[in-house]
Design a protein around this nucleic acid. Structure first.
Lengths: 152, 152
DNA sequence: TATTGTTATACTCTATAACTATA
DNA sequence: TATAGTTATAGAGTATAACAATA
């Protein structure tokens, strides 16, 4: 590090931005994303495509519109992500009998197998990132983040 | 969509991905980023340029390299951000007397004034996002995020 | 008239490689 | 030989508008 100078009239400078929750959130997220991407690379998945696959594997039978809302993506982005997963044979678009405009995204057997492997990798990645916290703090963090992520 | 409406006593694991800290981190960060960008728009600042400005305003006298490490950006991205702030007269590049390769980024008087206004806006934005948590939980969250963001 | 999926477009962000000047 | 700043470029992510089919 370069010159500190040791100013007498300035209080010991705290780390700049360190009290800014938005900055800390962004920096922690950047770390989490980098580790997750590294873990998913061997499955040719990105965090976004893995997330769509995870929703398709769940029993919720979400439409693309609902997937977009849940992942905070634009509906037009979901089109491309579902296209890619469908071309790989991991998901399929099924018509929604209640609304012929909507398409429900469901996982194929191959998609479920891919997800199971990828999930193990992301879980390992998460343990690596959260490893600096003990179990209680990890649970506390998840609870706090959930309330920020789903404020309604 | 079949949802239980988020009952307080319902296990969050009923929602897909909700036990995935990386997903919650990403979703909370997306919300935080959107609110911060809206707050900074009137100053023609983005979150990234505001962050660089905040470091320039601090007394740390960081080089571009150190700014890049601190913000988890590539050094080449910092060049463009400093260029933009310098053209606006908000920061200046000063030579580091200890290393003639390095350039220290410092704020001008105009930059400090801009930062003061922008900081008030981002603080208000942060209060809006963190408002769903009481003060103790906000402090707890900041502590947990700090340990994730700076694991060393 | 409003909504779902889709296409298209533009802009921002991210990642990488190479070059220069200094160390 | 390695590092700080810079330039260039390509790919990923984000935001917006428009359109056809359907509600």
């Amino acid at each position: 590090m370069t010159s500190d100078g040791g100013r007498a009239d300035a209080p010991v400078t705290e780390q700049p931005l360190a009290s800014d929750a938005a900055f800390l959130l962004a920096r922690a997220n950047a770390r989490s994303l980098a580790v997750a991407h590294a873990a998913l690379a061997e499955f040719d998945l990105r965090v976004r495509s893995y997330s769509v696959l995870a929703l398709a594997v769940a029993e919720a039978r979400l439409s693309q519109r609902h997937i977009a809302e849940y992942l905070r993506l634009d509906p037009s982005q979901v089109v491309a992500l579902v296209d890619e997963l469908q071309q790989r044979g991991a998901v399929a678009r099924e018509p929604d009998p209640n609304d012929r405009r909507a398409k429900v995204v469901v996982a194929t057997a191959a998609g479920r197998a891919l997800h199971a492997k990828a999930e193990r990798a992301t879980n390992a990645a998460e343990r690596e990132v959260l490893g600096v916290l003990d179990q209680d703090d990890q649970d506390r963090l998840r609870d706090l983040l959930y309330r920020l992520a789903f404020p309604d």
